[in-house]
Nucleic acid binder design. Structure first.
Lengths: 212, 212, 212, 212
DNA sequence: CATGAATGAGGTTTCATTCAT
DNA sequence: TATGAATGAAACCTCATTCAT
């Protein structure tokens, strides 16, 4: 499907019992394992269930279909990154602009790198799972957190531009994606961070000034 | 496969007769049609052949498998964008830095927007087709063109940083992708261009200065 | 493939539920039916599944591919013949040489004739299925049984020649094959038996003596 | 097809011109090459034509279909072996029985071994090509030659048994086939010959005497 | 006569999903 | 609730054969 509606991916039942939670966790982890070991197009529900140590039937008790499963995994991954960014933004309130940007960018990069393999694997399924929509939703939250942070920049009278923040986030994502897909070394990642910080700092400085 | 080798996608036979060339062209166009009308995961070789007005067998005379077909289409698309960027860069030699950047960015955006539908559709298949590898190869060329252009910036003594250019390109791609996937209006595109120009100008200024 | 490795033909799943066992049996029988009614090159997995009253999917739960299916059927057939020969050999211990040979040969011929149609049909698939390898393996067993039997021939001091036994078995197989493919009448079969007995008796007598 | 009629395989046109003869020869050789290098089930008419340096179309000028091609190749092979046996039989007239048998068997084995790879390859196609029928026809001729030879055995008054000769030939074929498919070394072949000679000598001696 | 592009029926195999046990 | 055998639509791809050039 070109643009699957988001509502179709809702989990089928909310895990209330302990056992269920464990099962869902296992399925999640198994999905990622299979993604990494077999690749996106050889990820089958049976294989995931096997790896998770449950039967296919059980899998289908928690997820109405394959897309829903992938959707959940994808969403959770973005959620984590997003949460890290938000937390960092909160901590950075009232600091100088350059520092704000630096911390935010580093939080983003670190979060992505933490499970870089998963990130890469998920790029491959994003498209089949309504990726763009989920990204959009998650980005909303990050943007708001950044907006709030920027509003506390000391000594400057400016209302930050929503659009600029979106552009910045898209730029960061793009650079990260390209780097991850090339499989960069730790050294590369360090350099990458510096550049991203520079990119965002200079852009934000320019964008904010302009808007003022 | 997670990372299909590029060599597996070589066209099977080079058209020598006039008839063949026409056929291949029709298949190409049909692929895009089907991609747009049915979506990536409902693109079947049979459907493409039908739309192209040939038999599946004929399709397989020119492409050893489905991936190879998509690969070719993908590659051609990138090629076009890349060519536009290179041409623009050549024209911009010896102009002021800001103008260089502006023209390059605008060339990129315009090229992508020209067949924005195709772009979006191709994002969906890129992953299954060795996308990252092709992108890398194509970016190579763009980077060199930009590097050459930057070396002609007047009145400044600086050797541009290869890495910065890669980062810039990745940033542009990321922003474009995000914008295209959101399906922006012409108005949005205009604003997008401005922002991208600003992003790149400020980053390059900073990066080049720093390096000097 | 010219020489498919035997390991590729391992059954995919061992039936644990009662239902499964029935299913596998039905598939086996259906394979033979189709082989007889349609011939080797019009035996398709779909047709077999149909005849067995199951879906193709089910067939592929038990056999990883078409070859594996045919392999199994072929193997089972040889197994039966081999078992008959072995049993007969055991019974013939300590009898006079001529009688040993006669009983062994007759057991072989009878076993083959019992389902002569299947035999003929299987000759046609043997090649595509690693036939020679399976034959070799099965012959091993028969040879050993015959060897053991010959070691009990009364009043003679001789160690039988392994190679001679292989030659004898190959000769028997060759004659049987030729006879089966010509489609002999019961009368012909009777004569055939006599001749085969004579052939083997005289050869063994000569070979053993010589080896003394 | 289970039993294709022989008449369907007649060559389409008799090569009268020199060029044609060369072409047909090339196609023959190519068929064997492909058989050896790709295996029976990956032998395609296109591949054969390629290897022969002609177009498929040309191939179909000389053979009405794939079966006819294989049939011809198979037949030619048998023909050669058969011719050798016949010639040898003629030379052996009036010699002692043991020597007759020995020369005949050795001729057979040598002929087969000369292109043992081809023999093995052809076993794999024989079934799809009406093999048994061709074999039968060819054996006919060999039998007659052997019969004639045996009628000249000195000092004995006996009319040889047609059936025995068939059995003997089938036995030789069977043993050869089994040996070839196991891929025997030259040393093995020598031993094989001895055993085959012994097998046939003792059998013939017994069969002829009996019949007298 | 030769070529080789085109055909398309048909084969094998996969895999998301269901449902009786 | 969990299981896993069964389903079957549908995808990919091959290859013998033809016929316009």
């Amino acid at each position: 499907m070109t643009a699957p509606s988001l509502t179709a991916f809702e989990p089928r039942k909310t895990p209330v019992q302990a056992r269920s939670t464990i099962t869902v966790g296992a399925i999640f982890e198994a999905t990622i394992q299979v993604l990494l070991s077999h690749g996106a197009d050889r990820l089958t529900t049976t294989r995931v269930a096997d790896r998770a140590g449950v039967s296919v039937g059980t899998l289908y008790q928690y997820f109405p279909n394959k897309q829903a499963l992938l959707f959940s995994v994808f969403e959770e991954h973005l959620e984590k990154v997003s949460a890290r960014v938000e937390a960092t933004c909160l901590h950075a309130h009232r600091k100088p602009l350059a520092e704000m940007i630096q911390q935010m960018v580093e939080a983003f990069v670190d979060a992505k790198m933490e499970r870089s393999d998963v990130s890469v694997a998920l790029y491959r399924v994003a498209a089949d799972v309504g990726g763009p929509a989920v990204v959009k939703r998650t980005i909303q939250r990050s943007r708001k957190a950044i907006e709030a942070m920027l509003n506390t920049v000391p000594d400057v009278e400016l209302s930050p531009d929503r659009y600029s923040i979106d552009v910045m986030l898209a730029a960061i994502s793009g650079v990260m994606r390209s780097a991850l897909e090339s499989g960069g070394s730790p050294a590369t990642v360090r350099k990458l961070k510096e550049h991203l910080v520079l990119l965002c700092q200079s852009y934000m400085a320019a964008a904010l000034t302009k808007r003022n």
